[in-house]
Amino acid sequence: MKMSSSAKPIEVHDLTVSYQRKPVLYGVDLEIEEGSLVGIIGPNGAGKSTLVKTIMNMIKPNGGFVKIFGQTAKHGISRVGYVPQRESVDWDFPVTVMDVVLMGRYAHLGWLRRAGKADHKIASDCLEQVDMLPFSNRQIGNLSGGQQQRVFLARALAQESAVYLMDEPFAGVDAVTEKAIVSILKGLKERGKTLVVVHHDLSSAKEYFDHLLLLNMRKVAYGPVEEVYTRELLQKTYGGRLTILSEMAFESAGVRAIEKEVLGPKK
């Protein structure tokens, strides 16, 4: 394993998150090795998106911590490229496809500097990779769902991060786009990037990823696909929650202060 230091790209320790007294994640431990292509699967409401958002420091956990390359989530996320769910932004915003992809370069630019020729070149290359270059001057509202997802992917590519977190990149895209995204993910993995992808389709998970995290409020299992993708473990994941654990988690979450999601502009 080629690793400069012992720090893992993503380390999650005893993470507990609840929304308004309702526990969503409970005591999740996770260590992801560099260069893995990880799929997070689990039933609806299993806390898949919550886990990703907590790693991205958008939600404050009630307990436990997240480390990115050994740093706290707050500092580490600058090394993470993030592909949010498509519904999370306002698609009527007056920006073009190119503007959005250039946002992927902002972290490299810092304050005061505008995106230059080199950045435009990188952004064009990323758009080319996702087959969206002909649309670069379109206003983003005039795109189909699959195209919008590709634009988000291109923006993440333009970030040139070491780690990528993607929240349901396959939701509502057509089969062709899904194939295209999968091949891009595999290409990134070949180049040594670490990818964590929330996925809702169990049947395709086996061929898309090399590691799987089975999640249902708690971590059911994590490991290479061939070890984890077993009838028994999947049944455990999708076969309903452990009743006593749910109850106790609910109780203990009620005791703690209500942490609110730190999403969106504070109003």
Binding site: N57, I77, Y82, S88, F93, V100, Y106, A107
Partner: peptide, 19 residues
């Protein structure tokens, strides 16, 4: 200009690049 653009369009992303 660019910070306002990205925080307006996608505040979560803006946070993730530590703005």
């Amino acid at each position: 200009y660019k910070e306002l653009l990205v925080t307006g369009f996608d505040p979560n992303f803006a946070r993730s690049i530590r703005l």
